[in-house]
C-alpha cells in the first residue's frame, strides 16, 4: 500500500475542500473495496478523505420517495422499514451482496462507486485498459465467465459488481452529487458509463465530486418487486446474472407498468428499457416475458466463457417476472 495522508471530513463542504485540486485524493467510505484495491496497488491515492461522517440518514419524503445519505451503511438501508415495505427489491439486492460484515461497513456511496472485480484488473501483471489505458485487455480472450455480455467494447469487457445499483437503476434513483463547482444531480442510470475506448473513466463524476445522497422516487407498485441473483455458490459470491424487477398488473392481467434491471452483464447496472417497453400492455405470461427478454438480450454477445449468460439472463427475467405475477401480495 502506498503511503497516504488521512483526513476526516465533518461535512461535505469540508471533504470537498480537502480533496480540491488533488487528483491523487480519494474519498473513503467503508473502505471495503478501496482498501482492497490499495493493498493490491491498483489504487494509489496520496490522500484519503474519510466521508463516513457525512449524512447517513434514511428519510421518507413527503411524496412517498426516499432520501438516503450517502454514508448510510448497506445494512442500514436494507434494514430500513420503508425500504422493506416500499422497495423490497432494493432490500433484497443489498442483502444478496457480499457478507453481513461487509454490508455493515460498506456505505451506499461506496457501493455505487465500487470498481470491477475483473481479476485482470486486480493483477498488476496483466494487461488492463481500465488500470492502464492503452495496455490492452487480457480478459477478452482469457477467463471471462464473470464478464459483460452487453455494452462491452474492444477495450474492456468488465462488469460492475454491485447488486444494490441494479435495484436503484430499476427504481429510477437519482444521485445527488456535490463538488468544487457546487451540487448537481444525475440519474443513477446515467452515472456509470459504458467502457467504450476509455474504460478507465467509469462514471460521470467530475474531479473532486462526491456522492452526497441518493433519492428514490415513489413507485407504489414496487411493493410487488424482488431481486434474484444467480451465482456460482449459494452465498457470498458475485453475480453471474441478477435481475431486479417490479411489476404492476392491470385488472385484465396485462402489464400496466414494469421495471427491470440486470446485474452481472455489463459495465454498468443495466436498465432493461427495451424489455420494459416490450412488456407494457402485454399479457403477463411467460410468452410475453420471454419475448421481452429476447428483445433486451438481442444485442448481447458472448465471450469464450460467458456465452451462457445470455440464455441465463433471459430465463432469469422470465422466472422473476413469473414469480411477481404469481405472488398476489
Amino acid at each position: 500500500m502506498n503511503p497516504f495522508s488521512y483526513e476526516r471530513a465533518a461535512d461535505a463542504a469540508a471533504a470537498i475542500g480537502l480533496a480540491k485540486g488533488n487528483a491523487a485524493a480519494r474519498y473513503l467510505g467503508g473502505g471495503t473495496n478501496l482498501v482492497d484495491l490499495m493493498r493490491e496497488t491498483v489504487e494509489r491515492p496520496e490522500m484519503l478523505v474519510d466521508v463516513t461522517g457525512l449524512p447517513h440518514g434514511i428519510e421518507p419524503r413527503a411524496d412517498g420517495g426516499l432520501l438516503i445519505g450517502a454514508s448510510a451503511t448497506n445494512t442500514a438501508l436494507a434494514a430500513d422499514s420503508h425500504v422493506r415495505t416500499h422497495y423490497p427489491l432494493l432490500a433484497r439486492a443489498i442483502l444478496a451482496g457480499a457478507s453481513a460484515q461487509i454490508r455493515n461497513m460498506a456505505t451506499v456511496g461506496g457501493n455505487i462507486l465500487q470498481r470491477t472485480r475483473c481479476r485482470y484488473f486486480y493483477d498488476t501483471a496483466a494487461a488492463c485498459n481500465k488500470r492502464e489505458p492503452g495496455a490492452g485487455c487480457d480478459a477478452r480472450d482469457g477467463f471471462n465467465r464473470y464478464h459483460a455480455i452487453l455494452g462491452a467494447s474492444p477495450a474492456c469487457v468488465a462488469t460492475h459488481p454491485s447488486d444494490m445499483c441494479v435495484a436503484l437503476a430499476a427504481l429510477d434513483a437519482t444521485v445527488h452529487l456535490d463538488g468544487p463547482d457546487g451540487p448537481r444531480s444525475i440519474a443513477l442510470a446515467d452515472l456509470h458509463r459504458l467502457p467504450g475506448d476509455r474504460p478507465d473513466i467509469e462514471t460521470e463524476l467530475k474531479p473532486g465530486e462526491l456522492i452526497a445522497a441518493v433519492e428514490i422516487p415513489p413507485l407504489p407498485f414496487a411493493r410487488r418487486s424482488t431481486y434474484r441473483k444467480v451465482r456460482d455458490r449459494a452465498s457470498y459470491a458475485f453475480a453471474l446474472v441478477s435481475v431486479a424487477a417490479a411489476l404492476d398488473l392491470a385488472e385484465d392481467g396485462t402489464v400496466r407498468d414494469v421495471r427491470l434491471a440486470l446485474g452481472g452483464v455489463a459495465h454498468k447496472p443495466w436498465r432493461a428499457s427495451a424489455a420494459e417497453a416490450a412488456l407494457k400492455g402485454r399479457p403477463a405470461n411467460p410468452e410475453s416475458f420471454r419475448a421481452a427478454a429476447e428483445v433486451e438480450l438481442a444485442a448481447a454477445t458472448g465471450l469464450r466463457d460467458n456465452g451462457f449468460k445470455i440464455e441465463l439472463a433471459k430465463r432469469t427475467i422470465v422466472a422473476v417476472l413469473g414469480d411477481l405475477t404469481g405472488d398476489e401480495a
Binding site: 488521512y6 476526516r8 467503508g30 473502505g31 471495503t32 482498501v35 474519510d50 453481513a100 460484515q101 461487509i102
Partner: peptide, 11 residues
Amino acid sequence: RINSCLALAVQ
C-alpha cells in the same frame, strides 16, 4: 461485526 482486514485502523 466487521472485517478488520478491510478496516483502516485510523478510521
